[in-house]
Design a binder for these strands. Structure first.
Length: 450
DNA sequence: TTTTGAGTTGTTCGA
DNA sequence: GTCGAACAACTCAAA
């Protein structure tokens, strides 16, 4: 009997729990469904997915199998396919977003759908406080997460996958290769090795430097499961045992745990997808000036580090983590634009756009999220720029208009009478008014609830 | 129930 | 240039 391996966010053969489960049951048909819900993703992001599917198909063909693509609502496509091949069951990696949970619950009523845990190390419902409620603070959560970690034994990629022949498949949609991020499992593993070979040793310091390749840049691969979370954690644990890498590995492991923390937050508090986690900050009177939002999206705010980061996003589909915080703080605190506007833009454009992590990050910056937002957490983009891009190399790379500006002047060119062709002479907002304006808007929301 | 210690990622100011 | 303190008040988690 044939079992369907329904691929969603696990485009890999190594350590794939759903594939493993399907293989134990018999012959396996790998299936990916092009859901109309993908339509509003950026072309770059869709390309990353399609290239990933193409890479997966090639890997499957080396193992006597192939990828079947179907289009439409998953429930319809699966019922059709299920009848067509007289399948025994559908095995799939459990996904925890509200959309996925609703979709899968509906399908489970009609078809034998087996949800296999694999997206996270710990299932989001496992880690709880003594009183049984989920954690809402990262540090105690992470301690328990680590304490409950047992030895990770990875499932190797299967040598051979036997699949029924000749099942109809849609073609993989055309895609453009992204020179900054090639998709696929082989590329993910290459990057993982490259990162743990070297940058991880300086990760503690360099991960914040926008001008260096100090981060793992694995997020797009983790997002689509071209690399599994367990594989990444396993590497972090291995690196922790080496003297040179121990500190960096510990910090990297914590970053990985942040991923699971936010997956868990979304799982237990699905309202965060729509509104503030903290109810007292759900009624901030945003300014929401559309022209400023557009300038932010285009990278034309007149603040070099913000513009560089926004252009990096547009050109590559990825943004350095430090830069994400800076542009988010600028949109929310300096322009007083609803964090959900920024969240939506990131979601559309980031290759790694993931509801849980993206929402968690935005709510954190906005101060509406799980940790209490100290009033003083308003980033000064000029200071951040000077600190984390000291020579201005990151800015020059993405904002060609500033190519000739020196390291001293590049962070705040408006302070020098430079007259730069094609670049705003002043930032779109005067920072002197920002702090008061933002704090009073936040206080209005707090008072409404009180 | 009460108490206690702690909480990712900053900025500004003055010594 | 460097350093430490102040910036508020609140909620969470555990004892």
């Amino acid at each position: 009997m044939t079992n369907i391996w329904w691929i969603r966010r696990d485009l890999r053969l190594n350590d794939n729990a759903a594939l493993h489960s399907a293989l134990e049951a018999g012959s396996v048909l790998p299936v990916f469904i092009l859901d109309p819900a993908f339509e509003n993703l950026s072309p770059r992001r869709k390309s990353f997915l399609y290239e990933g599917l193409s890479a997966l198909d090639k890997d499957l063909r080396k193992r006597n199998s192939y990828l079947v693509i179907r289009k439409g609502k998953p429930i319809d496509a699966l019922r059709q396919l299920f009848d067509e091949i007289k399948a025994e069951a559908i095995h799939t990696e459990e996904d925890y977003t509200p959309y996925a949970r609703e979709r899968d619950a509906l399908i489970q009523k009609l078809l034998p759908l087996k949800l296999i845990q694999g997206q996270t190390v710990h299932h989001p419902k496992i880690i709880r406080k003594q009183d049984g409620r989920p954690y809402t603070v990262y540090t105690p959560y992470s301690k328990v997460w680590k304490a409950q970690l047992s030895k990770i034994k990875l499932h190797p990629a299967p040598d051979r996958i036997d699949s029924p022949k000749g099942i109809r498949s849609e073609p993989i949609p055309a895609f453009e290769t992204n020179p900054f991020f090639r998709a696929g499992e082989a590329e993910a593993l290459r990057r993982l090795k490259k990162f743990t070979d070297s940058p991880i040793s300086n990760y503690a310091d360099d991960r914040n430097r926008m001008d260096l390749d100090g981060t793992s840049a694995l997020s797009p691969y983790l997002r689509f499961g071209m690399l599994g979370m367990r594989q990444a954690v396993n590497e972090a644990l291995t690196a922790q045992r080496s003297n040179a890498n121990a500190k960096g590995a510990e910090i990297w492991l914590n970053e990985l745990i942040w991923r699971e923390f936010y997956i868990q937050i979304l799982y237990h508090f699905p309202h965060v997808a729509k509104t503030a986690f903290n109810p007292s900050l759900a009624n901030i009177p945003w300014r929401n000036k559309a022209s400023e939002y557009e300038a932010w999206k285009r990278g034309e705010t007149g603040v070099p580090v913000v513009d560089a980061a926004m252009r990096q996003l547009k050109e590559t589909g990825w943004m350095h983590n430090r830069a994400r915080m800076i542009v988010a703080s600028f949109l929310v605190k300096d322009l007083l634009i609803d964090w959900r506007w920024g969240e939506a833009w990131f979601m559309q454009n980031l290759l790694d756009g993931d509801l849980a992590a993206n929402n968690g990050g935005w709510q954190w910056t906005a101060g509406t999220g799980t940790d209490a937002a100290p009033y003083f957490r308003i980033f000064n983009p000029v200071l951040q720029s000077a600190k984390f891009d000291p020579n201005g190399d990151y800015i020059r790379k993405w904002v060609p208009e500033l190519q000739k500006i020196n390291a001293k002047q590049i962070h705040a060119p408006w302070e020098y009478e430079l007259n730069i062709a094609g670049y705003p002479s002043e930032p779109i907002v005067n920072r002197e008014i920002v702090k008061d304006r933002t704090l009073s808007a936040y206080n209005i929301s707090k008072e409404k609830v009180r």
